[in-house]
């Protein structure tokens, strides 16, 4: 027994070291569950506020790019509105009863948010935005910007939220090739923030470089048809019968300033329906 205490006394430092390292590594392996750990992330009040302060200084340098991108989106929306209005005019009144457009309950609701913190050079990149539960942000909302799909809300605190972007090695997104409806899964290999990988496209599919890849609608959180990127390289897989496909992402993660969160009002109902079925 005496020997044991002597051993403890002699190695106190090492024992404390092992305990502390075990604590840290436990955090490494469990802390990626962002859902529970919003307060242990940049979405907490202190770091969130510091981030907002920093980005309010830095944002002036990025204003020009952000403005240009917003103006472009504005133009596209104007044209879409004009086209839809023309279409509506062409429909005779007898076919289209006189219901004001507002009466149609939209199934999607959009929220605007600003990016206050982001990284692109890690394997588990995250984006912090300046809207939280107090502004109606909920977990699993889709996040897009004028260019395309950015990611998914992973954790929400009172005034901030954490977004899991496509460029995070734990991101999974169900997508399809626009021209032909082949579904696949979009993954990220941790290398370039401009490029992601598309798997599960069978070799009998005809895919071309330059094909547009969009969300498939298989996930309740992402409405179908949001632009994800374009195919930049195709290689046949050696044994699986599936292509190895590289995607040029539509979103430039080094320049994401304004994002929109999509709240799918029907998602809850759909999840409730699908959940018991998949549990069996």
């Amino acid at each position: 027994m005496n020997n044991f205490f002597q051993f403890l006394r002699r190695h106190t430092t090492t024992i404390i070291f092992i305990i502390l390292e075990a604590l840290a590594l436990a955090l490494v392996f469990t802390g990626n569950d962002y859902h529970r750990a919003a307060y242990l992330s940049s979405a907490n009040v202190v770091t969130g506020s510091i981030n907002r302060l920093t980005s309010s200084v830095g944002k002036y340098f990025a204003l020009a790019t952000a403005n240009e991108s917003l103006a472009e989106q504005n133009l596209a929306l104007q044209q879409e509105v004009a086209a839809l209005r023309a279409q509506l005019m062409a429909v005779p009144d007898s076919v289209w009863p006189d219901i004001p457009l507002q009466a149609q309950q939209p199934s999607l609701r959009y929220h605007a948010a600003k990016v206050i913190g982001s990284s692109t050079n890690r394997s588990r990149n995250m984006i912090t935005i300046d809207r939280g539960a107090a502004n109606g942000v909920k977990q699993d909302m889709a996040v897009i910007n004028p260019q395309g799909v950015v990611g998914l809300v992973a954790a929400v605190s009172q005034h901030f939220a954490l977004v899991l972007p496509i460029i995070n090695t734990s991101s999974r997104l169900s997508v399809k090739i626009k021209r032909q409806n082949h579904r696949g899964q979009l993954l990220w290999d941790g290398m370039s923030p401009q490029r992601a990988q598309l798997s599960d496209i069978p070799e009998h599919a005809t895919v071309d470089i330059g094909d547009t890849v969009i969300t498939s609608g298989a996930s309740a959180f992402f409405p179908e048809g949001l632009v994800v990127g374009t195919i930049s390289a195709i290689e046949p897989d050696r044994n699986g019968g599936f292509f190895d496909i590289d995607i040029d992402l539509a979103v430039d993660y080094n320049a994401v300033y304004h994002v929109y969160l999509i709240e799918n009002l029907a998602a809850q109902e759909r999840n409730d329906l699908e959940k018991p079925a998949s549990d069996e």
Binding site: L23, A24, V28, F29, Y34, A37, L40, T47, R124
Partner: peptide, 12 residues
């Protein structure tokens, strides 16, 4: 770690 969303990594 908290500031950069890297739980436990810088700590270790």
């Amino acid at each position: 770690d908290i500031a950069s969303n890297t739980p436990g990594m810088h700590m270790a």
